[in-house]
């Protein structure tokens, strides 16, 4: 009798630990189906449309002056915003995790602001500040400084939208780490900079790279905020995402999807690097 009950209990336990096969296969099928439907299919379609008229059409769409200018502007924007936001992110994370001061939680909230504000609003803010009718508009006009509808405006808007990425990655990590190692270094006579480069930076480098990567991906892909401050001058103030929209509206399907394929390629590279970093991090 008792033996029978024993085995019954065992199977019950097993059933609780292992879901029936149909649940497992069902869940896997749903997850895979979703990925295929909403990720692989659109990405595949981008490539299919980009090459719909052959390699030469694809290549000539990419080497066209307007595309080249858009690519250059996108790279320039990323090259300026990513280093600036890296420095800012480290400084902010350092301040928040290492010091106690009034208004700290306010600062933490403010860092997240660009995430919670619609990118279009971020763009409009800069038009209201630096546009000809804006707060500083007259002064800027008088001194012949162009911000809105020129490269500085695009960089500013991108800077605003991407500034939480690095700080967001570092703050939890640095909070968790505590500051014993740094205190030890300082008490042994290391200078502030030396402590930073030899103790802090090595500890946070993977998280930092991860943040930089995400920041870069967004900087190159941002549409909404940049669209508002760009002015859409062809070959001048169109970034790659804006160029994709313009080409699409010109009925230049190959051009639009060729541009999109670069952005998709960038996304894939980011993903691969991201998994590499995660793997490195867990390895440590």
């Amino acid at each position: 009798m008792s033996a029978v009950i024993q085995t019954k209990n065992n199977t019950k336990q097993q059933a609780a630990l292992h879901d029936p096969t149909w649940v497992r296969t069902g869940l896997i099928a749903i997850a895979l189906g979703f990925i295929v439907l909403f990720l692989c299919l659109p990405l595949g379609l981008v490539l299919f449309e980009a090459f719909s008229k052959g390699w030469t059409a694809y290549w000539s769409a990419l080497t066209q002056p307007d595309t080249q200018a858009a690519l250059k502007l996108t790279l320039l924007t990323a090259l300026v915003t990513v280093p600036l936001n890296t420095v800012f992110g480290i400084a902010a994370a350092w301040a928040i995790t290492r010091f106690e001061f009034k208004g700290k939680s306010l600062l933490t909230t403010l860092i997240d602001l660009p995430f919670s504000v619609s990118p279009v609003i971020s763009g409009v803010i800069f038009v209201l500040l630096f546009g000809a009718q804006g707060v500083f508009g007259e002064w800027l006009m008088a001194h012949d400084v162009k911000i809105i509808f020129a490269t500085p405006g695009i960089i500013l808007a991108t800077l605003f939208v991407t500034f939480p990425f690095v700080a967001r990655q570092l703050i939890p990590l640095m909070q968790e780490m505590g500051n014993e190692e740094e205190e030890a270094a300082l008490s042994l006579g290391a200078s502030g900079w030396k402590t930073f480069f030899q103790i802090t930076l090595p500890n946070i480098k993977w998280a930092l790279l991860y943040g930089v990567l995400l920041c870069n991906a967004r900087a190159m892909g941002e549409f909404g905020a940049v669209s508002v401050v760009s002015g859409h001058i062809r070959g001048m103030t169109n970034t790659l995402p804006l160029h994709v929209e313009v080409s699409y509206n010109d009925y230049d399907v190959v051009g639009a999807f060729a541009g999109a394929s670069i952005l998709a390629g960038l996304a894939i590279v980011t993903l691969v690097l991201k998994s590499l970093l995660e793997w490195k991090q867990s390895d440590r």
Binding site: G134, K146, I148
Partner: peptide, 20 residues
């Protein structure tokens, strides 16, 4: 010659805001 295209109302707004 450089071109910018968009809805007419939006484009006029951009010129007012300083699009040269």
């Amino acid at each position: 010659i450089q071109q910018s295209h968009g809805g007419a109302g939006k484009q006029a707004r951009a010129v007012l805001d300083g699009l040269e």
